[in-house]
């Protein structure tokens, strides 16, 4: 079995697992249909059973020569996981800090982390102080107008470091 087939089987197994998890969840949804013909657990069961079937078929495709009608994925053969870590860190840090740091600073940080990851992925030099300063400025330049549009123009409060609506 080739490596691709292994990975594809794993994807199929993943689909199968989602199906099983949905089926497990569907067990606890009541069936009372009232006048509606089908109860609230009808669609969950249809989905769960279909996904289990899809999972099985996908695994079978993977084991019998790989996915059918598949476009070879674009980009590099091998994944560059450090970039994944950087971009993920960007998003997760944003989720963790947005209420404390405020929208602008948190998004700027998110931008800086993501740029780091994407630069490294492209094999560019990253982490020089000048570069970092430029990134911080660019990130703030994108995030700040967005923030002001929301707080000042649209009247929707995004979290800020201060109560002023400017930062």
């Amino acid at each position: 079995m080739t490596n691709t087939q292994k990975m594809q089987s794993a994807v199929g197994a993943g689909v199968l697992l989602i199906g099983l998890a949905l089926a497990a969840g569907a067990l606890s949804i009541p069936a009372a249909a009232g006048y509606g013909g089908v109860g609230p657990n009808f669609l969950p069961w249809v989905v769960a059973v279909s996904l289990i079937a899809c999972g099985v078929l996908i695994v079978r495709e993977a084991l019998t020569g790989g996915f059918r009608a598949m476009d070879p994925p674009s980009g590099a053969e091998r994944a560059y996981w450090p970039a994944f870590a950087w971009v993920s860190a960007a998003l997760l840090a944003n989720a963790a800090l947005i209420t404390t740091l405020g929208f602008i600073l948190s998004c700027t940080l998110c931008y800086m982390l993501a740029v780091q990851g994407l630069r490294r992925a492209g094999g560019q030099a990253a982490g020089r102080p000048v570069g970092l300063a430029i990134d911080a400025a660019t990130g703030a330049a994108i995030a700040a107008p967005v923030y002001w549009t929301f707080t000042k123009f649209l009247g929707i409060n995004l979290p800020g470091l201060t109560q002023s609506g400017w930062l």
Binding site: A76, Y80, F84, G117, A121
Partner: peptide, 10 residues
């Protein structure tokens, strides 16, 4: 964005 970072950097 994730795809670009992980697979299409170069």
């Amino acid at each position: 964005v994730l795809y670009a970072a992980v697979y299409e950097g170069r």
